[in-house]
Structure formats: C-alpha cells, structure tokens
Design a protein around this nucleic acid. Structure first.
Length: 765
DNA sequence: AAAGTACGGGG
DNA sequence: GTGTACGTACTTT
C-alpha cells in the first residue's frame, strides 16, 4: 500500500524522461527535488480511412505502448471541423521517433498536426503548469510519482511570489570581450555577496563552491560558447566529473551553435549548455536576460510556458509564437506543421503599393528649438488587435463584403476574431498594468522589477509584428503583415494632417513617431493636439516630450538632406534622446563613445541655441584637447581603442582584405574557431597598410611591440565631434589641421605612409 | 564606379 | 526552433 504526501513549492524546471516528464520543484526552504509526471505527449492524424489504417500499421511496429483515440478538431485557416485520430504515448523519446518516421515517409496519404511542439511545452499547455508556477503537488511518497497538482498561481498575475533562488555568477578575467579570443585567464566566481578569483585548480574550486552553496542558478558570461565546454573538456581529460547539474546521467545536454539570418543580418547563437535541476543562463547568449534581466526572463517563461533555460536562449518571437500555439490548442485547433504557404498572386503595380513598410520622412537637417515628439504606443500590436489583423482573417473566404485595409484593399474577416489579436490583446493589457505599476510603486526595487517585465512584453509585441511577415512562420502571412503596415501609414498620415491643420509645422515622421513645432506653443497646446490626433486615429498616442532643442543630422553623401533616425535632442525634463550617433554604434572605439557621451552630458546644460554654442566654445573644446593629448601621446589603452565587428562570413569566406577579415583570419590562425555572426574586437594598427594583416590586430593579442594608428583614430574621433557641431564652431577650432577633413572638401584622406608620424595641428600641440 | 561589408532600430 | 528589411556609410577592388 502506498502513502501519499503533499509537496508545496514552485515549478523550477521540467525535462523529458524515458517515460513521463521530470518536474523539478523548489520548496519554501529552497530545497530542490525532482518528481515524475506521467504525461503522455500526443499528436493528431488526419486522412481518409485507408490512410489512417496504413498509419496505424506503421505505429504497430513500435514497441512503445501507443494509445489511440477518436477526436474532432478544427482546421486553423478554414475554421472547419475535422475528424481525426489522437495518438499518444508515455515515452517522450519514442514520441519524437514516431513523428519523424511518420513525417519523413514519402507520399504519405495522412497528415500530422500538433506534432512539432516541444514535449515539455505540450506538457505545460496540457497541465496548465508553467515555469515558476506556485503549486501543491500530491505524490506517492514511495516513487515520487505525481498523482495530482493544484495550481495557486496564474501567468496573468502581476504580483507573484518566486522561489528563493541562490544565484552564482561565473566569468573569466581579462576584459569584456569573448575570452576565447584571448589567452586564458582566471575564473571569477561571485556568490552570496562574495567575489572569488580562482587561483588554484578551477575544477576542484568549482566543485567545492557548488557543493557548499548548492546554487539554483548559474549566471555566466560566455558560458555557452566557452566557459562550460572548456571546463568540461578539462574534466574529461583528467577523467573527473564536474557536477553542474543535479543529475549525473545526461549531464549538460547540448545543442549545436548556429548562425542564421534575421532582419537582414546574420547572427550567431552559441551552442547551449543547459543543466538538469539547475539553470544555466549565459548573459552573452541571451537577448532576454541581457535586456530585461532575470525578472523579464521569468515573466516571458511564465507567459509562453517555455522552460527557463530554453526561453533564455530563444527569441522573443518564439515566445509569442508559443503563446499562439497555446491559445490555438485551447481553442480546439489542429496546429499546422511546418507551414509552406505561397503568397496570394499580385500584379507588379499592386506589389509597388503594398510592400512599403513604415512611413519615413526626411527631416530638414538642422538645429531646432521647442519641438514636440508624439509616439503611438506599441503601434503595430495595437493595430493588429484593433483591426483584427491575423493570417486567417486577411482575405478570408467567408466575408466577401468585409471592410478593407486602406491603400491595399485586403478584406478582413468580420466573423471570427483572429488568433494574433486574441493572443496579444491580453499582453497589451498586462503591459499597461505593469507600466502603471512602475509609476505608482513606491519601492525603487519593485519599480525596477515592473519595468523589466513591461520591457520584456514590449520586445514580445515588437517581434510579433515582424513574425507576421515571415512566410514560413507557423502563424504568419505576408498579407497580414502588409495590412498592418498599411494601417500604420494611414495613422501617421492622419496624425500629420491633424497637426498641420492645427498650424503646427511637421518636422519629421518615422513609422510611429512624429516631430512637430509651433512657435509659442505651450505644453497644454501639445497635449490638446495629442488628444485630437487620438480622436482622428482611434489609437493611443502619447506626447513623448518637448525638446528644448533637437538636432537632425545631415546625410554625409548630401549635406542638404537629412537622414531619418539620426538625431539627438534634450527634453525639457533634462533627459537626452540620442539616435544613430557614433556613440550608439558597436563599431565605434570605446574612447570615442565615451568622449561623445561626455560632450552630450555637457550639452544637457544648454537651454537654447546660444547656450549650446557657448558650451561648445568652452567646455567642449578643453575636453577635445585632453582627449587628443592622450590619444596622440600613444598612451591610450587597447580596450578603449578596440572596435567591435560582427562577422558576416566565415573567416576564410571574405572576398576583400578588410580589417575584419584580417583579424578573423589572425584569430583563426591562433586556433580560435569563428562562425558568421560572432563578434570580434580589434585595434587598428595601420589602416592604410597594403598588407591587410598589418591593418589591425585582435584585441586579445594586442600588446608590445604593436602600436596603434594614431592618425586613423584621430579621424574617427573628429567624425564623432563633427556630429555634435553647430554653425561650424568646432570645425573652425579644428581648421588648419592636416589629414582631418571636417568640411568634406578639404585635403585628401591618404597622406602617405605612417599616419602616426604626420605633423598634427594646433589642437594637438 | 561598383561591389563588399557592417551598422541601427525598438527602449 | 524560425525572422533573408532598408537606408546609410565606409572600404576595397
């Protein structure tokens, strides 16, 4: 006879077992234990009777027990009921194999649905559990088998309690860049408010620390790509164990690193090293943790029901996609598998009208005072929710006379609410609640937590839109994407018209923001305008702020025209807003960033044009001189000089001998493996050298006798200065210096060999 | 001059 | 486990 017992705590992690799902629970005291749940993953088969019969014959070849059940579900796009067969098994490994076998068979007469959802996620959807859910679990105490679960928590809760987590941090000394790109340094471990630098054997020390503190979370920098595999290799060489996880079997499951294209550029995701019963989070391999912290990560995992360690390594797009799957399953739909859907036919002229994206205007470059900026809050998600924009609602079969999208005339279903609007509506609402809590919370720590959570939501909503346009997305359709941008253009146009009718001058517009001014207008006038714009568009628009001054930068190719999204300005609150300046770029040397930021900080004291110029003439000039002295004296440290570049190619795949190619090849020769999308850091040694290998060196291997290219760095520095210039004040101060061409019509760029030796102008003494 | 290479945005 | 924009700017050939 078995006795039962209740375990109370939080769901910490889940994992696939040979049979069932392992559920890690943390109790109030912080103790971690694993329980077993008998969940049976399932998928659906559709087809005629003969097809199903053949499929069943295939299934009978498997030795794992298989359960069959008749069911009726709805087809997603048509919304029609479909009779189908639910196939389930109690073994997750067998489940994957069966699906692979049934989907790879050529000319199969059956179709599979709901068959490519990760098993752990299917488990969460089916049981209503989610990562960090507060639960009471009834188990048979003899074998830890779960007999029932009560959930006292909800993903929609804004004030939830979390388990007490002991967090350990590991890093390697020697700077912020990738430690694989420099000689090996010592380990740094932080835990329990203590910092330890490991001088002794790293394996022995780590084992001691882990067994003493038993952390729930290991937060690393470069853990996935370097630290963890390096330590494991070391352990393997010595035939020792290294218990990162709480289970010896299947220690550190691993997925290969990969490079992939997204938003027009290649990015690299390092191979993941996750632990069983303990979270490993790599700050350098997790957008969500870096941008929104552990709080944001937990928030997204709770909503998407993606286990924490996977959520950390995946995109916010996957998060929203997962929520859509959850919604669709709950609504009784068959989940389409690996969608391959062609765009509806369009003529060439139609394409021209449709594929326009967001509206961008060209600002007239220059320095303006008393300018207001208005922003539509989460414009695209709001439009998707308001106008029911979703793959299955655009040009649906059921509503031939439905209302249409402006410009492009697509029809939108009036019969059913789309999956996308249904999914994001509560998200928009929850984000709003968090934003209100940020404002009202008295405790600064709580404020910060709410802010990180709302920021995580924001990223989800942003990617949700991008995802709509991806033709192979599970729930995406290009026409839905185009309808969203068409409505967006319409809304920006309406707002612009309202402003102009009110006598405001329209200075600049960018997708969901607009900049306007009217001489003598007060804050109340702008607020009034905002209200009018809201009335005219029907969607929320906020006064982002009133700038004391704002500078729209000119194009470098044609100084008469401005460029969208390169500007900086000072709000009347004293806050700066900076877009597209060199300080915002990853490939700007650190000292240039720092100098530009310092100058901007000085300029926050300027209330108008006159004071701006005065600050340039006085404080900025002396800052430039100091910085130039350090640079030209050859004393600048390599970290400050380093430039970061992301590889777009395999190191040997470059056609041109650029600095990036040369340094990637240098690292390769030193045994560093590099993938497209990975970042490297370099110091420019001689930008004009004929031999590419002399142009620059990898930061990690830059030391004596190398010297940096003072002339080149000077040019870069002066470019950054020029961005902040007004009425040629700084240019005038710097005139007469050789090499430097501030006006764009001065001396030629290349002054022959040895830039370092070139005589420098008055500023450099 | 043309082609190759890389960046930001969003907050 | 997804996402191949778009405009600008610089370098190399």
């Amino acid at each position: 006879m078995t006795t039962s017992k209740i375990v109370e705590g939080w769901v910490f992690d889940v994992q696939e077992e040979p049979v069932g799902i392992g559920v890690w629970i943390i109790d109030r005291e912080g103790r971690t234990r694993k329980l077993l749940h008998g969940f049976k993953p399932y998928f659906f088969l559709t087809g005629n009777w003969a097809a199903i019969k053949t499929a069943i014959q295939r299934l009978e070849r498997w030795h794992a027990p298989i359960y069959l059940e008749q069911a009726e579900k709805k087809e997603f796009y048509s919304d029609r009921p479909v009779p189908c067969l639910k196939v389930s098994t109690d073994s997750p490994p067998a489940y994957s194999k069966i699906i692979r076998a049934l989907t790879t068979e050529k000319e199969r007469p059956w179709d599979l649905y709901t068959c490519d959802i990760p098993v752990t996620q299917l488990f969460f959807i089916e049981t209503g559990l989610f990562p960090t859910a507060k639960v009471g679990v009834e188990i048979e105490s003899r074998n830890s088998l779960i007999s029932s679960i009560s959930i006292t928590d909800s993903p929609w809760e804004t004030d939830y309690s979390l388990p007490p987590l002991q967090i350990m941090e590991i890093d390697m000394e020697g700077g912020s860049g990738n430690p694989a790109h420099r000689p090996m340094g010592r380990l740094i471990v932080k835990i329990d408010q203590r910092e330890m630098i490991i001088d002794e054997d790293p394996l022995i020390s780590l084992k001691q620390i882990i067994s003493r503190y038993d952390p729930h979370v290991i937060v690393s920098r470069w853990g996935d790509s370097y630290l963890i595999p390096k330590l494991q290799k070391l352990a393997a060489q010595r035939n020792e164990s290294l218990p990162f996880g709480r289970e010896s079997s299947g220690e550190v499951p691993k997925k290969r690193g990969r490079s992939y294209f997204t938003y027009g550029k290649i990015v690299f995701t390092a191979s993941s090293h996750t632990f069983k019963g303990r979270w490993h989070l790599d700050l350098e391999n997790s957008f969500t943790v870096r941008e929104c912290g552990l709080e944001g990560l937990i928030e997204l995992a709770r909503l998407s029901k993606i286990p924490i360690q996977r959520m950390a390594r995946t995109s916010t797009g996957t998060c929203i996609s997962s929520m859509q799957v959850d919604r669709a399953i709950k609504d009784g739909y068959l989940i389409p598998w690996r969608k391959s859907q062609v765009e509806d036919f369009k003529t060439a002229e139609e394409l021209l009208v449709i594929d326009k994206g967001g509206l961008t205007y060209r600002p007239v470059p220059g320095f303006y005072e008393q300018v207001a900026e208005f922003d539509f809050a989460s414009m695209y998600p709001t439009l998707m929710a308001k106008f029911n924009l979703s793959p299955e609602t655009v040009n649906c079969r059921c509503c031939p006379d439905a209302s249409t999208v402006p410009e492009i005339g697509f029809r939108i279903c009036s019969r059913r609410e789309g999956l996308i609007p249904k999914t994001i509506r509560p998200l928009i609402e929850k984000r709003k609640q968090y934003k209100e809590k940020v404002k009202s919370a008295a405790d600064p720590i709580l404020k910060e937590i709410y802010d990180r959570r709302q920021s995580a939501h924001k990223w989800c909503l942003v990617t949700c839109f991008g995802y709509l346009g991806y033709k192979n997305a599970r729930f995406g359709k290009i026409e839905a994407h185009e309808s969203t941008t068409a409505w967006g253009r319409e809304m920006l146009l309406r707002a612009k018209e309202v402003a102009e009718q009110g006598g405001f001058r329209f200075l600049h517009g960018l997708t969901d923001s607009l900049w306007v001014k009217k001489t003598g207008a007060k804050k109340e006038d702008y607020l009034e305008l905002g209200k009018l714009m809201e009335e005219k568009t029907g969607i929320p628009i906020a006064l982002e702020g009133i700038y004391r001054w704002i500078s729209f930068l000119p194009s470098k190719q044609d100084p008469r025209i401005g460029v969208p999204s390169r500007f900086f300005g000072l709000f009347d609150t004293g806050k700066l807003k900076v877009r597209g300046l060199m300080a915002r770029r990853h490939d700007t040397p650190g000292f240039v960033k720092k100098a530009q930021e310092e100058i901007l900080a000085m300029l926050t004291q300027a209330r108008d044009r006159k004071e701006y110029k005065e600050i340039l003439r006085t404080r900025v000039q002396s800052l430039i001189e100091t910085c130039m002295d350090g640079l030209m004296g050859g004393k600048m440290n390599p970290e400050e000089l380093s430039i970061l570049k992301r590889l777009s190619q395999d190191p040997m795949g470059y056609e041109h001998g650029t600095m990036t190619a040369a340094v990637a090849q240098e690292l390769l020769a030193r045994g560093v493996k590099l993938m497209p999308g990975e970042a490297i850091q370099m110091v420019i040694t001689d930008a004009s050298a004929k031999d590419p290998s002399l142009k620059a060196r990898a930061l990690g291997f830059f030391d004596l006798p190398h010297t940096y290219d003072q002339g080149k760095y000077r040019e870069i520095f002066l470019e950054a200065i020029k961005e902040l210039d007004l009425d040629g004040i700084l240019e005038g101060m710097l005139r007469g210096t050789p090499i430097v061409d501030l006006s764009g019509i001065g001396l030629p760029q290349d002054q022959g060999p040895g830039r370092q030796k070139i005589r420098v102008g008055p500023l450099d003494r």
